[in-house]
Amino acid sequence: MNDLTQAMYAATRLIFSADALLVSIIALSLKVSFTAVLTAAIIGFPTGAFLAITRFPGRQMLIALLNALMGLPPVVVGLLIYLLLSRAGPLGEFGLLFTPTAMVIAQAVLITPIIAALSRQVIEDAWREYEEQLRSLGAGTLAAARTLLWDTRFALITVVLAGFGRAAAEVGAVMIVGGNIDGVTRVMTTAIALETSKGDLPLALGLGMVLVAIIIGVNLLAHGVKLTAQRFHG
């Protein structure tokens, strides 16, 4: 208990003194996770929309598979990306291993299925309501997909948040492909793991508090935006 109080005290001081090390770690974390979410959304939304409104043999299988991929273990994803990016791997020539780019790739791979699967559900529900009207107006698959993505935009905010939460919180994948190199690829989760094992509990706890605060803050903000917009648009 004493450890915890002391650590809390030191952590609070670190946060309020805007410790340079702490700030750089937080900044990198946010940069990596936001980029990963953006990438995953660019791929996941159209995939979800396409799966929601088209009918083809094997579609149900694909949806089940996509849902299963939501539970991909981060360390396994990390390992696969590691093998792809390592010197001897098929993408080794780009020299991406142990760079922030590799971490973005790993997180994007992790959360693209989440965004695709959840947006598929949201868009399919909307499609049930819109289908006849849109077909009556002569909308093709592409036009319908675009319309539905726009019309479900408030619900899709929540989908993005689910992805962001997963990306910002995972440690296994970024640890493997990033290598937790000080000042280069160290992010909040890997730093927490490292500092804890080294015994620097204040820094670990400070980072932990910031991480939780960021995730709560982003969610509150997005939720507020969503509620206001929904009240206005109906």
Binding site: E129, Y130, E132, Q133, S136, L137, G138, A139, A143, T147, W150, D151, R153, H233, G234
Partner: peptide
Amino acid sequence: ARDQAMVFQRPVMLRRSAIANVMYALKL
């Protein structure tokens, strides 16, 4: 799309302004 149209029992309104709903159909 232009030669025939249909109005349903429960109107399906797109999440945008009234006039944008009409313009959407015209643009399609």
